[in-house]
């Protein structure tokens, strides 16, 4: 399974999302490949993604997708990520 963490300026805040998403997945016992990308790169990195993680500010910029889009408020709250990933994948 592939999960893409999105940010605006390329490889910035998406790296934090990636690290904490991997932690949350570990807690859930789910194995997945988490990739950091920017909005522009989503066209290539996102085609086979099952889940897209992003900020409330960037949701509208995500092109139409079959992936579940998860909006993360606090990038440092692993529990929030765990809850939302569990809802989407569980």
């Amino acid at each position: 399974m592939k999960i893409v963490a999105i940010c605006g300026a390329g490889v910035g805040t998406s790296a934090i999302l990636k690290v904490n998403a991997e932690r949350a997945l570990g807690r859930l016992g789910i194995s997945a490949d988490v990739v950091a990308s920017d909005v522009a790169g989503l066209a290539t990195t996102g085609t086979d993604a099952q889940v897209i993680l992003t900020s409330p500010e960037l949701v509208e910029r995500i092109p139409r997708t079959n992936a579940d889009v998860i909006v993360v408020d606090n990038y440092f709250d692993v529990s929030e990520l765990e809850r939302k990933l569990d809802q989407a994948l569980g």
């Binding site: 940010c7 605006g8 300026a9 390329g10 910035g12 805040t13 934090i16 909005v39 992003t54 900020s55 409330p56 500010e57 960037l58 910029r61 606090n74 990038y75 440092f76 709250d77």
Partner: peptide, 22 residues
């Protein structure tokens, strides 16, 4: 410019902004 273009998504936690560019 990053914030002008993409909005305040750089505010990644309560009260914390991570200002950066490429």
């Amino acid at each position: 410019q990053v914030i002008d273009e993409f909005g305040a998504y750089i505010v990644i936690g309560p009260g914390l902004a991570l200002a950066h560019a490429r």
